[in-house]
Nucleic acid binder design. Structure first.
Length: 114
DNA sequence: ATGTTGACACCGG
DNA sequence: TCCGGTGCCAACA
């Protein structure tokens, strides 16, 4: 594999239950790295390219990168519109131009939809 | 091995 | 409060 880091990041993102979101910093910490920058880099390759077959641990299906946002709750410029629609579909409420991290920030343990 | 880049985070003015 | 610069870590050429 290219790097276990990328695999772990994808796995962590995939572990995010629907209706919840995580910040790049949180994902980085979950995987055990401080390369918060690398998180977005991995997602760009796995989510921005359809060539993620067999990369996202499987199986499955495409990494829910739309559940990953910045510490501010805001999203990237290119994804702002995209993520907003996807998150809204998951039931996540938006506060203006940001996500309500206070209520949708995944704990990283409560896999059971609250 | 070195330099540059990157879907970020944090601190200072 | 808003804007800017700096720092961290990993991957790529």
């Amino acid at each position: 594999m290219s790097s276990d880091l990328a695999q772990r990041i994808l796995g962590a993102v995939e572990s995010i239950p629907p209706g919840f979101v995580l910040t790049y910093g949180d994902v980085a910490e979950l995987v055990g790295t401080r390369a918060v920058r690398h998180v977005g880099r991995v997602l760009s390759v796995s989510g921005g390219t359809p060539a993620n077959e067999g990369v996202a641990g499987g199986g499955g299906g495409t990494v829910p990168w739309h559940r990953v946002l910045r510490s501010d709750g805001s999203l990237a410029e290119h994804l702002y519109t995209e993520q907003r629609q996807l998150l809204l579909g998951e039931g996540v409420r938006f506060i203006g131009d940001k996500v309500d991290l206070e209520n949708y920030r995944w704990d990283g343990v409560s896999t059971t939809t609250a």
